[in-house]
Simulated assay, not measured.
Amino acid sequence: MLATTVIAATAPLPATPALLIVHGLFGSARNWGVIARHLASSRDVVSVDMRNHGQSPRESSQSYPDMAQDLAEVIMAHGAPMDVLGHSMGGKAAMQLALTRPELLRKLVVADIAPVAYGHDQSGHIHAMRALDLSNLTQRSEADRRLSAQIEDPALRAFFLQSLDLKAQPPEWRLNLDVLEAEMPKIVGWPDTKGEFDHPTLFLTGGRSHYVRAEHRDTIKALFPKARFAKLPDAGHWLHAEAPRAFEQTVEVFLQA
């Protein structure tokens, strides 16, 4: 089963389901630590490391049906139904789960992704991580300096470096880069899953992101007829990192409604 991080509710409300947080590509549960703690004010929060990420098992597939099955196992182990929040790749996995196992979810939050195939490719980031010289590397600041030769954006470097295990000898990425690269067409794609999730669903997007566009709305509404849409105007694709407090507040209002 997937590796999980569980945060118990500080002041649990009666009949409030737990929240499952599902990270995106190259992420892990630890990326969501602060947000998970804040959202645990009234409910238990379970964050996962997806397959081939973090502490979770290494598998040969990164397909959405397989990732959805992983999430189903977590929910059944912790108690169904749960509310589910997924970002990017995690949002697609959560949508796949909702369409195929709707009885496992009460509400769904999809952060900055649509149930469509995209034309971009994230393999360049894998090449950059592979190119990082890990020899005699003990300081994250030095890792950042070396990675800057491949990736200019300091925020993106900081995100990737959260998956670098400097305590390992030699240091290693907590990512199965080979499988993620081989399965990239599936990750940026969408399996054209049929079905309908007739439960409240929030599509929360960044105002500076182009992942969820106007032309996607008909597809979204066909699969998620109770979909609602909200936007954080000053955020991009990594909206939970760029506007964390606004993100938390919007998610909390939707889940409590």
Rank of each mutant, 00 (worst) to 15 (best):
G27T: 13
L108F: 09
A241P: 02
E215R: 07
L164C: 01
V116H: 02
A29G: 11
L20H: 06
G90P: 01
A243P: 00
H87K: 03
S56T: 02
K226Q: 05
P81Y: 11
Q69E: 14
Y64S: 08
P57T: 14
A155H: 07
A98V: 06
F254E: 05
A155V: 15
L132E: 14
T16L: 14
D121V: 09
L180R: 02
L175W: 02
T10A: 12
H87F: 04
L19D: 03
P191W: 08
A214Y: 04
R140G: 00
A182G: 11
P225D: 05
P115I: 14
T201V: 12
P17Q: 09
H23V: 15
G79W: 11
L20P: 01
P191A: 13
D70G: 02
A29L: 12
W32D: 02
T4W: 02
A257R: 15
V46N: 03
E172H: 13
Y118E: 14
L13R: 14
V6S: 04
R217N: 13
A111F: 00
Y64V: 15
R145P: 01
A182L: 12
L20D: 03
G27I: 13
G79T: 10
G195R: 04
P185I: 06
A117E: 14
Q55F: 04
T201K: 11
G86N: 12
K92M: 05
H120T: 13
Q96D: 11
I7A: 09
R30K: 15
S42R: 14
L137N: 05
D153E: 06
P65E: 06
L104E: 05
I113D: 01
V84Y: 01
M89R: 05
H87A: 10
Q169I: 06
Q122M: 11
K92P: 09
N136M: 08
S123H: 10
R145I: 07
L232C: 05
H78A: 12
A230C: 06
S123E: 15
E196F: 09
P154K: 08
T4L: 14
P81Q: 11
D165L: 12
P171W: 09
R37S: 09
G86Q: 10
V22D: 03
A8K: 12
S47F: 02
L19N: 04
S56R: 03
H199C: 13
L132H: 06
H53I: 08
F229C: 02
A117P: 10
V84S: 00
A68T: 02
V48H: 00
Y211A: 07
L239C: 02
R208P: 00
P170K: 14
V48D: 04
R58M: 15
L132C: 11
T205P: 00
I113H: 00
L180C: 06
A230I: 12
L239Y: 00
S56A: 07
A158R: 11
Q62R: 13
Q249G: 07
L164Y: 00
H240L: 10
L97K: 03
G90W: 04
K226W: 02
S63Y: 08
A128T: 10
S42V: 07
A9V: 06
L164H: 00
G124Q: 09
P154G: 11
E248A: 13
G207C: 04
I7K: 08
H78W: 15
P81H: 11
S163A: 15
H125F: 05
A168I: 10
S47M: 06
E142Q: 09
V179D: 00
D83I: 13
L147E: 08
H240K: 09
